[in-house]
């Protein structure tokens, strides 16, 4: 299923931070993990990951280091910083509230406005 680009763009920071919460990863690894964990629901244009990563690193939400792959190639690994973990927690809370709000409106639930 192809999602609206706006939906993906709005959540990409949250997705990247969440991927790095448990382990450090390099860019291609993140793309693979994103596709795998979402059962291929999220398949982004892969190069667009890097401006996101670099922006997060610039703001110190992520740090990075180089490590050599067995083929001799260098890979740049990203790691979540403490500041990044705080941002992740904020984004999760924000997402949960947003998600609940959307669900409530769609389902016409208890919190939805109604006139009787």
């Amino acid at each position: 299923m192809k999602f609206d680009k706006g939906l993906i763009a709005g959540s990409s920071t949250l997705l990247v931070l969440a991927l790095l919460e448990k382990e450090d990863m390099y860019g291609y690894q993140m793309i693979e993990a994103l596709a795998r964990r979402s059962n291929d629901a999220f398949q982004m244009q892969e190069g667009t990951l890097y401006p996101i990563l670099h922006a997060l690193e610039k703001e110190k939400y992520l740090s990075s280091y180089q490590q050599q792959a067995p083929t001799g190639r260098q890979r740049k690994y990203y790691r979540l910083t403490k500041k990044g973990k705080r941002l992740l927690d904020e984004k999760r809370t924000e997402w949960a509230a947003f998600h609940k709000g959307v669900e409530d409106v769609l389902s016409g639930g208890a919190n939805a406005l109604s006139y009787s």
């Binding site: 244009q45 190069g47 890097y50």
Partner: peptide, 15 residues
């Protein structure tokens, strides 16, 4: 599958 180089280039240049 990498996407549009120009668009990525603009974003990277900004950062």
């Amino acid at each position: 599958e990498m996407g549009q180089a120009e668009e990525i280039g603009r974003e990277l240049g900004r950062i």
